[in-house]
Amino acid sequence: MAEAPLPAIRSLPSWLLGRAAARGRALVAEALAAQGMKMWHHVVLSAVRDLAPVAQADLGRGVGLDPKDLVGVLNDLQSASLVLREPDPKDRRKNAVRLTEQGERMLQRCEEVACAANAELLEPLSEEERERFLEMLVRVSGTRETN
């Protein structure tokens, strides 16, 4: 059997992390799709829960989504009765976004299936290895753990 091409590239941490990230995204996307949701829907619902009521512009900056793309996501979510856009109580010229009860239930389902998908991703690791791996990922990614 022939050796896989590019052994030097395929052994780089950046390559391996990219492959693991792609697998993780695929698992989560598939789980969310079974709920009729996309990744950005889940991200925006989660941010709305954490920030509500939140001005639409602040929401877009908070999740790093272009305003045009955010409008599309919010249109999808509002059409599904998952969020409401209403005049911002702090500035009536702006829209504020909040979850509906249905949006809260959908977000809970999304969180459950995303957690299950992440558990599947990390299934080859022991519980101790998972904890250590996550600690190392936080350090390598340059982000801080928030929980």
Rank of each mutant, 00 (worst) to 15 (best):
D69P: 00
Q56N: 07
G72M: 11
V83I: 15
A31K: 09
A34I: 03
L17T: 08
V43G: 01
V48D: 09
E104S: 13
A80L: 14
G18H: 10
E131N: 06
E145P: 02
M1F: 05
R61P: 02
G103K: 02
E3A: 13
E135R: 14
L82W: 13
V48Y: 01
A55E: 15
V113M: 06
L125T: 04
G60M: 01
L125W: 04
A26D: 14
R130W: 00
L32T: 09
L74E: 06
A22D: 11
R109M: 07
L16I: 10
L77I: 05
L77K: 02
L17E: 10
R85V: 02
V43L: 12
H42L: 06
A119R: 13
K68G: 12
T100P: 05
V73S: 05
A52E: 15
L121A: 10
Q78A: 15
E123P: 03
A47W: 00
Q102W: 07
L77Q: 03
L6S: 11
L134P: 00
P67G: 11
A47H: 01
W15Q: 03
A52Q: 15
E104P: 03
P5E: 12
S81C: 05
A2E: 14
G72F: 09
A20G: 05
V28K: 01
V83W: 01
R85N: 12
P87C: 14
D58K: 03
W40F: 07
S79K: 14
A119W: 02
E123S: 10
E112K: 08
L59G: 07
L65Y: 00
R49G: 01
S81T: 13
E131K: 11
L27A: 10
D50H: 06
L32K: 07
E145N: 12
L12W: 03
H41F: 01
A20I: 10
R109L: 09
A116R: 13
G24H: 07
L107V: 08
R109T: 09
E129C: 03
S141M: 11
P13L: 06
R19K: 12
W40R: 11
S141C: 10
L134F: 03
A21W: 07
L65V: 13
N75A: 14
R19L: 08
D66N: 15
E129M: 04
R49D: 02
V44Q: 00
C115M: 12
L65M: 15
V28C: 06
L6P: 02
E104G: 15
L137H: 03
L16P: 01
P124Y: 00
L6F: 15
E127K: 09
D58P: 03
R10Y: 01
A119C: 07
E101A: 15
